[in-house]
Simulated scan of single mutants.
Amino acid sequence: MNPGLRRALNGLVVGITITALSGCGTLFHPERKGQMDGRIDPVVAIANGVGLLFFILPGVIAYAVDFSNGTIYLPGTQTAGVDAMPLDKDMDVAALEKLLSAKTGKTISLDSELLLVEEVDSLDEALALVRMSGMGDAERLETL
């Protein structure tokens, strides 16, 4: 076999394997990280399925990475934000859950794995945490 053709085929196989191992949705749509559910993006699902053609393991890993990151789902209506609310030092968990439920319009349980509650020292720190979560990245990138 021609050495140039062999090198090109090796490069192609390595490129496809790296793409499959890292998760296609994670590469194509990093702004979707953190989505919990929704409709599955058929383009990402098919791209991950291509990994199944090159042995089984790369495709399975691509699906696992995309499902764990949430990048296989089409964009939803999830939003994140920061509301500054002064809290009493003697507020118990039940009172805080009631306050959060009233503010969000949803039943909130602080024991939920899907809820992250952190005490921060400043509003700037809270805003930095929201920015690091990746929520709203698409809208911020559109304004650039």
Rank of each mutant, 00 (worst) to 15 (best):
A128T: 06
Y63G: 03
L52F: 01
F54P: 00
K33V: 07
R7C: 09
S68N: 15
M36F: 05
A94V: 06
G11A: 10
D88W: 02
V65L: 15
A94C: 01
D66L: 09
L12D: 02
E113L: 03
N69F: 08
I16E: 07
V120A: 00
P42Q: 02
L27G: 00
V13G: 13
I72N: 12
L12A: 14
D41H: 14
T79W: 11
R131Y: 01
N69C: 10
I18T: 09
S22C: 12
D124L: 07
M36V: 09
S112T: 06
P30C: 08
R39K: 13
V130W: 12
R131L: 09
I72Y: 06
D90L: 13
G25V: 08
L21P: 02
A45R: 03
E142Q: 15
G49N: 04
L9K: 09
L123F: 13
T107V: 04
E118K: 15
F54N: 03
E125W: 00
M91V: 06
I46D: 00
M36D: 05
K98Y: 05
L9P: 01
T17W: 00
V93T: 13
F54E: 02
D88S: 15
I108L: 12
G25R: 13
P3G: 09
R6H: 11
G81C: 05
G38M: 09
G105W: 11
R6I: 11
Q35H: 05
G4H: 13
A128K: 01
F28M: 15
I56E: 03
P3Q: 07
G76P: 12
R140L: 11
N10L: 15
G59Y: 06
H29E: 09
I40P: 08
L21V: 08
D83T: 10
A20Y: 06
P3C: 05
G49T: 03
M91H: 02
L127Q: 12
K103F: 03
P3I: 05
T71E: 05
S112C: 02
V120M: 10
E125A: 04
G23N: 14
L123Y: 13
V50K: 04
G25C: 08
G105P: 02
V93G: 06
L21N: 03
R140N: 04
G59W: 03
T143R: 14
G34P: 12
M135Q: 11
V13S: 15
L110G: 13
L5I: 12
L100E: 07
I56W: 10
V130E: 07
M135Y: 04
P75R: 01
A128D: 06
V117Y: 15
D90M: 11
L100F: 11
L100T: 02
G76T: 09
G70L: 10
